[in-house]
Write a protein that binds this DNA or RNA. Structure first.
Lengths: 202, 202
DNA sequence: ATTATTTTATGCGAAACGGTACAAAATGAG
DNA sequence: CTCATTTTGTACCGTTTCGCATAAAATAAT
């Protein structure tokens, strides 16, 4: 993995630290989170945070990237091509809701949609990473849908590019509504309707 | 309208001030906006802001409420029942994109989805007003769709409740994607696909 | 004119903010 | 052991933050 370095060894795991930082950012947003709060949550003092990740924006970007990568892993699992497309979409929404509805005081929604959008104007790198994250998600679904057309799960000549983006659109709405406090029942109904609209009524 | 008050008259218009404050919040988010910035943008010193609107959260809530009300007016215009439902939805998305794609440095998306979501966990009143705003929007579209069923624009027995929420879902996605920097062309294509999906391919 | 009432403007103050300097501590290399 | 290197912890810096205290200014009521 990594060769032993010269100086004093780190007393923390960078990946775990990013996860702890993510929890704070997720609840309070980027601008609403202070370095003191991050320091307390990660149990690292500010200089250690600074040394390992750079300033607050760089740390936030690292958290964003980790979330993007994790999301793509979850999506890849949900889109298991040995299952029908309809089941795939159900799994996508189910795993999304599992994430979105978690939270201490209230459901947190999607980390990117709930916190990165707020910074997207002032911080160009946040905006770019957000756009890339959404596009990656769209593309993965589109790829599965292209396969579905080949297999006859979707009608010949389906516009898989737009179908995929509509499938993502339902998820964006789930994210926003979850953060706004909509009930699990309400969100599950929206997910089901979305599936019916894209795959045809079962 | 309002009877003359006793003391020194206000040198500003509260509605105009809320609009100026909105511009700042829209670009920088709630937590990312300081009272100094708001004071400069509104040309009111802090004590005047405080006297007229209360603290920063109260001011933000006033801005949210004004945006919600304006959005409902725009929506009502777009849903003009003398036009076909398909045209109505096209107008809804067109007027939404007109708002979302405006901005100095980058497209700002939806004020509520881009800035209120970030605060929704920590500020319960923001979360509640956000949820109410989304619900009002859904309900207005649902009402128009119920009329569409009566008129035969939509098939008998259509689930107008869910159709309306899917139509909103497309708009939520337009809002998020606009803020992430997607092009007008891309967003217009998504809007068109959404209409086709809900009203049937033209 | 005087008084009561409300808004404006200056400026304060305590706290929180992001970021860093510096020295102590902990490791590997020689 | 000695030195170079890296991380850790304390303490600090200048700035910004939110909110308010206070007094001047502008109006209506009397």
């Amino acid at each position: 993995m990594s060769e032993k370095k010269r100086g004093r060894p780190r007393a923390f795991d960078a990946k775990v630290t990013l996860e702890k930082a993510r929890e704070v950012f997720w609840d309070r947003g980027f601008a609403g989170t202070s370095l003191d709060t991050l320091s307390a949550a990660t149990q690292l003092n500010r200089p250690s945070l600074y040394g390992a990740f750079g300033d607050k924006e760089a740390l936030y970007l690292d958290v964003m990237e980790a979330y993007r990568a994790e999301s793509m892993d979850v999506l890849a699992d949900a889109l298991d091509p040995s299952l029908p497309l309809r089941d795939n979409l159900a799994n996508v929404y189910k795993s999304a809701l599992k994430i979105y509805l978690h939270g201490d005081t209230a459901a947190r929604g999607c980390f990117l949609i709930s916190t990165a959008t707020a910074e997207a104007i002032q911080h160009e790198r946040v905006r770019d990473l957000l756009r890339r994250s959404l596009a990656d998600f769209d593309d993965a679904i589109e790829q599965r849908m292209a396969l579905a057309v080949e297999r006859g799960e979707l009608p010949e000549g389906s516009d898989v590019h737009m179908l995929a983006r509509l499938a993502s659109a339902v998820m964006h709405s789930l994210a926003v509504r979850a953060r706004a406090g909509d009930s699990r029942r309400t969100l599950e109904a929206l997910a089901k309707s979305g599936i019916d609209m894209i795959c045809g009524k079962a």
